[in-house]
Design a protein around this nucleic acid. Structure first.
Lengths: 342, 342
DNA sequence: AAAGCCTATTCAAACGTTTGCAGTTATCCA
DNA sequence: TGGATAACTGCAAACGTTTGAATAGGCTTT
C-alpha cells in the first residue's frame, strides 16, 4: 500500500540519529539517555509511527499470526469456536488467518501450503470429512511445527487435541430418554470416519446396555449429510419400516433432530408424548422450535479459547509437546427442554 | 518457526549460482539459459522450495492479505458473508485476516491499527453498533487506502459500499402482510443508528402509506438487542397495551420474529390465522420453526463475494475510486412460508 | 585484430527492523 | 595531564526477495 507509514528511519532522519538508536529508544533499552528517549518517543508520536509487522516477522522469523483451518464457517458450532480462538489470540497479540476447506481435502492441503509460506507460527485444524489419512499433518509435526487439532481430531500418536466429551454427552442424552420411559430409541448417526460420530454412537450404545437393552444395529441409521431434509426423509421411512415404531430419537446433531421432529409431526405423532427427541450441539434454535429441543451443549467458545491457549503456549515454548499429554476433553452438558420430557 | 524452509540462497549455493539468477530462473525471465532454468527448477523441487511470503511482502510493500472486520462471527448472516469473502479472496490468491469487534468501537479501532501494521492491502468492514462517527475510516480513505464497507455502511461521501436492498425487502414483506389481509401491522425495529434499521423502517412505512394507511409511531417498537427473549417480552407487552390488538408483525430480524411468534402462541393467538409474521434475513431455522417463518432473504454469500471483488479490483488498480460510483445494492427476496399466509 | 554486440550471469541496494560490536565523547580519578 | 572508565550512540550485517545496472565472456563484423 502506498499509505506512507512513518518508519524508524524517518524518525532517525528528523532527529539526526541513527536507526539503531531510535529502535533502542523506543524499546527503553538501557544505555540510551532519557533525553534521547523522550525526543524519540515524542517524534514517534508526532509521526504516528507504527512498527512494520512484516519487517519484524522477517527479522524474527515469527509472524505472530496463527492459521485456522476449518471445514465451514457457516456452522453455528464452528463460528462459536472461531469466536473463542479470535478472543484468545487477540488478547495475546496474535492475528488469526482463516481458511475454510468446504470439506475438501485438496483445499485443506493448499491452505496449509499458503499458510506455511506466510510464516505462520502455528495452526489450529479441524479437518474435512474427506480427510482419511494424515500424512500432511504428521510430516509437519515431525519437524516440530505446532499444530493443535480441535473437534475433529486424527489418530496420530502424541497429537495435541481438544475435543468435547462426545461419549459422555451421548451417554447422558440416551440415558435421559430411557429415564423418561422411552425404550425403543433410534440413533441418527454422523459420518463414521469422524471420531466424534464414533464416540456419539458408542455413548448411545453404552447407555442402552447399561439399561439392559442390547443395541440393535438396525436402529442406527445413517444421516451423513447432517441436514434437516435428509433427517426428515430418513425418519419418515423409519417410522413405517421398523417392525416396532421407535419412541425415542437421539440424533448426532441438532439439524437432524429438528428434521426428525418435523417428520414425526407430519406422521401425526406428538413430541414428546409419543416420541422423545434429543439433539447434539445446542444450537441457538433449540429454544425456538416447537416443542423446544433438548440437546447436548458443546462448549464451542471454550474449545476455541483452550485450543488457542495450547497452541500459543507451545509456540512460546511454555511446554514441549513430547513432555506431557496436553490434550483436553471438555465437558458437555445435557440441556433438557420439552422435546424429551413427558 | 524453526521449520527450516529452503530459500533461494540455498538453491543458489547448491548450484553455485547467485541468488538473482535463481530468482529470475524461477520466474522464467528471459536472459537466463534454459539449461540453468531447468537445473534451478529441479533443485527447487528437490528442496521443496516455497517462496517466503513475508520477504515478498516487505519487498513489494504488498502482503496479498486483506483484513475483515465484523461485529460478530457467530451470526448466521455474517458467517455467510465471510464464506463469500473467503471464496473470492482465496481464488484470487489473497489471504484473509479476520477480527471481530464484539460490537465495540475500541476494538474496531485497534483492529484497524494492528491490521495496518501488518501491511494489509485493504480492508472490508461492517462496523459496530457503537460506531457513530467515522473519522477512523475517512482519514484512511483520504490517504487512498482501500476500504469497502458491507451491510452496515457509513454515510461517507464516495465510500464504496455493498448493501442489500433493505428498503425493498421491508417494503415487500409489509406489502405481503397487507395483501394477506393483515392491516394492524407493528414493526419490531433495530438500532436506529444503523442505516439498515432505518431502511427497513422506511420500507415498512412506505408500504403502509401506499396501502392508504398512515404509519403510527406507536406501532414501531424498539428491539435493539435483536434477541428472541427481548422480542418475546416486548411482544407480550404489546399485545396487552395497544388499544387495538396488532394482527401483523414485521420484524427487523429473524430471531426477534421467532420471539414474537412464541409470545403470540403463549398469548393464545394462532399464527398465521390471528397474527401474520415476517422476519428478515432468512436464517436457516426459518424452515424449522412451527409454523415455518416467512422472511426476507439477504444474499450474504454474494455480498461477501461482491465486496471482496470490489476491494481487490481497487487494490489491483482496476479502477480508481473517485472515477465512478461502484457501490452495489443487492436484491433481496421475500420467502413466503406459513407464518404469514392465511 | 580491434570494435561492437549479444548472452548469461553477478553485484549491490532496497524493503524496515534488530542487535553484537565498535566508536566517540565526556567525566572522573590519580 | 594523562589514562581509565562510563555513558551514549553509530556501524553494519542479517532476515529472503527482487531488480536496475554492471560485468564477463564469446561471437560477429569489418
Amino acid at each position: 500500500m502506498k499509505l506512507e507509514q512513518a518508519t524508524i528511519k524517518d524518525i532517525a532522519r528528523e532527529l539526526n540519529l541513527s536507526a539503531s538508536t531510535v529502535s533502542r529508544a523506543l524499546k527503553n533499552y538501557p544505555g540510551i539517555s532519557s533525553e534521547t528517549k523522550r525526543k524519540v518517543k515524542a517524534m514517534a508520536e508526532k509521526l504516528n509511527y507504527r512498527p512494520n509487522a512484516i519487517a519484524l516477522s522477517l527479522r524474527h522469523s515469527r509472524s505472530f499470526t496463527i492459521g485456522v483451518i476449518i471445514p465451514e464457517v457457516v456452522h453455528f458450532f464452528f463460528s462459536t469456536v472461531i469466536s473463542g480462538i479470535e478472543e484468545e489470540a487477540f488478547s495475546r497479540g496474535y492475528n488469526v488467518i482463516l481458511t475454510q476447506t468446504n470439506e475438501k481435502l485438496i483445499r485443506e492441503k493448499s491452505s496449509i501450503d499458503t499458510m506455511l509460506s506466510n510464516q505462520i507460527d502455528g495452526v489450529l485444524i479441524s479437518y474435512s470429512k474427506e480427510t482419511t489419512e494424515f500424512g500432511h499433518f504428521s510430516s509437519l509435526l515431525e519437524k516440530g511445527f505446532p499444530i493443535v487439532f480441535f473437534d475433529r481430531v486424527p489418530e496420530i500418536p502424541k497429537a495435541i487435541t481438544v475435543t468435547v466429551d462426545d461419549f459422555g454427552g451421548a451417554y447422558s442424552a440416551t440415558k435421559h430418554l430411557l429415564n423418561q420411559g422411552f425404550s425403543r430409541i433410534v440413533h441418527l448417526a454422523g459420518p463414521p470416519n469422524l471420531k466424534i460420530s464414533q464416540e456419539r454412537l458408542r455413548g448411545y450404545q453404552a447407555a442402552l446396555r447399561d439399561h439392559g437393552i442390547e443395541p440393535d444395529p438396525a436402529w442406527v441409521v445413517p444421516c451423513f449429510l447432517g441436514t434437516d431434509q435428509e433427517a426428515q426423509q430418513v425418519t419418515t421411512k423409519l417410522l413405517h419400516s421398523l417392525p416396532q415404531r421407535p419412541d425415542g430419537i437421539f440424533s448426532h446433531n441438532d439439524m437432524t433432530a429438528v428434521g426428525a421432529m418435523m417428520a414425526c409431526k407430519a406422521a401425526g405423532l406428538r413430541v414428546p408424548q409419543d416420541v422423545g427427541i434429543v439433539g447434539f450441539s445446542n444450537w441457538q434454535f433449540c429454544s425456538m422450535v416447537d416443542p423446544t429441543l433438548s440437546s447436548v451443549y458443546q462448549p464451542g467458545f471454550e474449545m476455541g479459547v483452550k485450543s488457542t491457549a495450547l497452541l500459543l503456549d507451545w509456540i512460546e515454548k511454555k511446554f514441549k509437546p513430547e513432555e506431557a499429554d496436553k490434550s483436553v476433553i471438555l465437558d458437555t452438558e445435557l440441556i433438557v427442554r420439552k422435546s424429551s420430557v413427558r
